[in-house]
Design a protein around this nucleic acid. Structure first.
Lengths: 212, 212
DNA sequence: GGTTGTGTACCAACTGGTCAGTACAGATGA
DNA sequence: TCATCTGTACTGACCAGTTGGTACACAACC
């Protein structure tokens, strides 16, 4: 029973990567459910089947694990969520945003209103404790904002977005509204809140349809 | 030195109210700065000069202290923030909301972007852990929403708000946006975010000005 | 008016438990 | 045989909550 993990799973000991990945996998799952502070190291180790000495061989501290998880979430968000929505230079910004809103709404519905936004949750839980966490989270929100801004500005030059639109301000507002809507949905446990917010955000967006 | 508290401060022992108040005062200050989870009972006791046994004489648990603090914040919010803004039945809803937004922006500016919204902070910190906290927070946001809804509906009947406005949805969206904006401002430590969000919220409100 | 009884307010020291992090010995493989 | 991994047992800090007892105001009774 001693060396189960190493032999059973295979690449476990080989390159030293798998152990790290097993930890990351278990930790990101637990942290997503219980939050960073309420996930003890022992929980992560029990779940991943990794010993404590082993953990501290691969990570310097729990904080470093937290950074690794956060970097993972950020990378996934940037590549898997933001990129597919806003990468297409031919896509119409306003439609892309509307589509994005629908995707977020659908994600909330699937999760039954609970859980909230992984980034938003970590943001509010950690931003006022560890400066390192805050900085990373600020970075990803900035990236999100910038991508939105760029999409809007490009469309504006093309005449597909009204001149009254101030891309940076609109981007900030959209991000803020969405995070707030998710927070409120989590709090009230009522998907209707999210639905109504999305409708109103679309109504707001309609302000920037070019005049006919 | 033994009976300092009772004799020096005066009403301390008299009616049993002052000790409780000293605890509440210290706790609400600490919780506002560090959050509920990161405020240990010992911190509160050290700050208030109250012994531990004494604390448990006045409160059943740390959780009960949390509830007391939260009830205090809620009462203050309802009476001191919401009431003065939306109580006047003659006031024009849209102007009242704009005025309210300015007040929130000013408050953020004064606090130097940090701190965030006491209610929003607790909401994101506690809503997925303690059901009791979640329920109370949901209640106060519902009250806020209802007051906004009522103001908008009243104005709508009077013709001062456009028929396209769905008061409940608009109220949800305004609350969500505002909380999100505060959250994002805290995260980025940049008041410009808040300023731009307020501008955009006003632009959104302009959608409901009655057609001339 | 002094003794005795009673409830309130309070304190210091402690308990039981959790947690991040450490020490170290044993295994594994080049 | 030496460096790289890994598991077990431990440490010290911290934290919510408990305990047993003290200080004192106030009342009742003689």
């Amino acid at each position: 029973m001693t060396t189960t993990k190493a032999t059973d799973i295979g690449t476990k000991t080989r390159d030293g990567r798998s152990t790290r990945e097993a930890i990351l996998e278990a930790a990101s799952r637990l942290i997503h459910v219980h939050g960073y502070n309420h996930t003890s190291l022992d929980d992560v180790l029990r779940d991943s089947g990794v010993g404590k000495g082993n953990f501290y061989y691969h990570f310097k501290s729990k904080e470093e694990l937290g950074y690794a998880i956060l970097d993972q979430i950020i990378a996934s968000f940037l590549e898997r969520t933001l990129e597919p929505c806003f990468a297409d230079p031919e896509g119409r910004a306003l439609s892309q945003i509307r589509c994005f809103l629908d995707r977020v709404l659908e994600a909330q519905r699937e999760r039954n209103c609970v859980g909230g936004c992984p980034l938003g949750n970590l943001a509010s839980e950690l931003s006022d404790v560890h400066e390192g966490f805050r900085a990373r989270l600020a970075f990803v929100f900035a990236a999100w904002r910038e991508r939105l801004t760029l999409a809007l500005r490009t469309e504006q030059l093309r005449g597909a977005v009204d001149a009254a639109c101030r891309p940076g301000a609109v981007a900030d507002f959209l991000v803020a509204s969405l995070e707030g809507a998710i927070l409120l949905t989590k709090l009230t446990k009522d998907i209707a809140v999210m639905e109504q917010c999305v409708v109103e955000m679309k109504r707001y967006l309609s302000l920037f349809e070019p005049r006919v």
